[in-house]
Amino acid sequence: MYKIRRKTCILFLSIAAAVVIFHNLGWFASVEEVVRIVINPASDRLYQISTERVRKQRFSSFSELEQAYYNLEKDHVKNTIDYTKLLLLKEENDNLRKQLRYTTSSGVQYVGARVIGRDIEPIGSSIVINKGESSGLLPHYPVITHEGVLVGVVEQVHKHTALVRMINDNQSKIAATIINKKKSLGLVEGGFGISVHMNFIPQNEQIHIGDTVITSGLSEYIPHGLLIGFIEAVQKETYQPFQEAVINPIVPFDSIRLVSVAVPADKE
């Protein structure tokens, strides 16, 4: 039997406030770690099952699968040609650097991690990875997949796990560049479902559908050159100083299993 009184409400709100304060002071760290140790295996297993289902449901018919296969074959040939050209350019670049005795700044190390969970609220887009503070991770480090595609930024770090905010999260903001003549700069923001928007692109700069968008290197810890996606649509109003582009990310965010976190080499 209960009767709801003002004192009871104040008591419960005080307990909630105490929980928040103790968390911020770090007094609940060990309790939180125990909770994660208990919950993470279940989250990991359920997430693996969900990504398996997503992958199997990607094609609704055999002809769709066949078409996707042919497209992939074409892309493979094109990529092989591009890769060959890249190798030749790299060799030429290395030779030129040697001749100029050019020294590069300290590089980046990659810490591999497995995705063991994803966003737990309808409002966000995030994933949980199984590496944390003990592996040298810190907040704001970029998280990539497929050796060069940016998928998110480390948001919170715990002892053995970390929360990663994806680039399509509504609070994500990444400084980016478009691979066009003028290397237009802009800000990639999420919050629009699967796609992301690139805002603050100067109105007078020419951008086209299909242009590649990469990180500009102007955000702290995020190196230049990480692939974000391709421009799918351009939104331009003549009286506005900036134009917007809709970007189609390269990787599907609902079935990522393995990622790497770029850790600056001097931070290791």
């Binding site: 909630a16 929980v19 968390h23 911020n24 909770v35 989250s43 737990i120 929360l163 905010r165």
Partner: peptide
Amino acid sequence: HFFVELYSTQPFGVIVF
């Protein structure tokens, strides 16, 4: 909801309160 906060990117306390 304390458990949910541990897996959320929102500031701690918003969901619990």
